[in-house]
Computed example of a mutant assay.
Amino acid sequence: MRRAYADVPAGQIHYVEEGEGDPVLMLHQSPRSWTEFQYVVPLLGRTHRAIAMDTLGYGGSSPVPHTGEGPHQDSVEEYAAGVVMLLDALGIERASLVGHHTGGVIAVEVAAAHPERVHKLVVSCTPFVDAVGRTQRPDVDGAEVQEDGGHLTELWRVRQPYYPPGRPDLLEDFIVDALTAGPRRHEGHAAVARYAMETRLPELACPVLAVGAPGDVAYRDLPRWAEAVPGIRVAEIKGGMVPLPDGMPEEFTDTVRDFLEAA
């Protein structure tokens, strides 16, 4: 895998890529980074140009720029603009997008705002954010910093029920990304809660695959995706939980590749 930074109008975006062929850009959940796809990139890179980026404000990427006074509230539209900036910087006119959780919401906005730039769209364990969905957003990753480090235990405790037993390495990767994001680690979730997805879904013009995992909090929304997007394909990965791409990379990659290579 090759790591690099792309200079963009918002600053710099960190990304990783491997392989050649049709480009596939992967977008992580909040408050993760490209490492959510660290095992998927080399697998998908066998047949595609697999790219995983850090969303603006997360991982190694610059924060969302703002010039106003007071604290800034990120938006899904701003995260999506960062995706387009990276595509432009890499000279990619059209790519398929694979988004997990928050990344799926961002991918929807990119595909709706720039249909000419998106070949196919995969929304993995992505919440359905309409009037109902906006009231069901979980309050996670917002633990206040404590001098004794108790917030680290709290971050771990809240996530642990949605992670597979015997895989503390996956929770460790989450903790690293959460600490890297700092006090803004919850901002991605807040941006999703403010997003009016129901107004953007009618703008989707590309083939869409919705991937669900029974152990994931967004699994309940899979039927709603099937009803809301005409012609959508739906796939379930049995045994999957919140860390689906990094927890079950082979199954995840096979599901994504089958969709990308289908006529």
Rank of each mutant, 00 (worst) to 15 (best):
R3E: 15
A4E: 15
A4G: 10
A6K: 07
V8Q: 07
P9T: 07
P9E: 12
A10H: 11
A10L: 04
G11K: 00
Q12P: 00
I13C: 12
H14G: 10
Y15M: 04
V16D: 08
E17W: 00
E17M: 02
E17H: 02
E18A: 14
G21E: 04
D22H: 13
P23W: 00
L25M: 15
L25F: 08
H28V: 12
P31N: 11
R32I: 08
T35F: 12
E36D: 13
F37N: 01
L43S: 06
R46H: 12
H48C: 01
I51A: 04
I51K: 00
A52E: 07
Y58P: 08
G60Q: 09
G60V: 14
E69R: 13
G70C: 06
Q73H: 15
Q73L: 12
V76Q: 08
Y79D: 04
Y79K: 08
G82W: 00
G82S: 06
V83M: 04
A89N: 04
A95R: 01
V105C: 15
I106E: 09
I106F: 04
A107Q: 02
A107I: 00
V110N: 10
A111M: 06
P115I: 02
V118E: 07
V122P: 10
V123Q: 02
C125Y: 08
T126C: 15
F128Q: 03
A131C: 02
V132F: 15
T135K: 14
Q136W: 03
Q136E: 12
R137V: 15
P138K: 05
P138G: 01
D139M: 13
D141W: 08
G142I: 12
G150P: 09
E154L: 10
E154M: 09
R159G: 09
R159Y: 11
R159Q: 15
Q160G: 07
P161I: 00
Y163I: 06
G166K: 03
R167V: 04
P168I: 03
L171M: 04
E172C: 13
E172H: 14
I175Y: 08
V176F: 11
L179Y: 07
L179C: 14
L179M: 13
A181E: 06
H186I: 15
V192I: 13
A193E: 12
R194V: 07
R194W: 10
Y195H: 11
Y195C: 06
A196G: 14
M197P: 02
M197S: 05
R200A: 14
L201N: 03
L201Q: 05
A205D: 13
V208C: 11
A210F: 03
V211T: 01
G212L: 07
A213T: 04
G215W: 01
D216C: 03
D216M: 02
V217R: 14
V217I: 15
A218W: 09
Y219A: 10
R224C: 07
W225I: 03
A226Q: 14
A226K: 11
E227T: 11
V229W: 13
I232F: 01
R233H: 12
E236G: 01
I237S: 01
G240Q: 03
P245N: 05
D254E: 15
D254K: 11
T255P: 10
R257K: 13
F259A: 03
A263R: 09
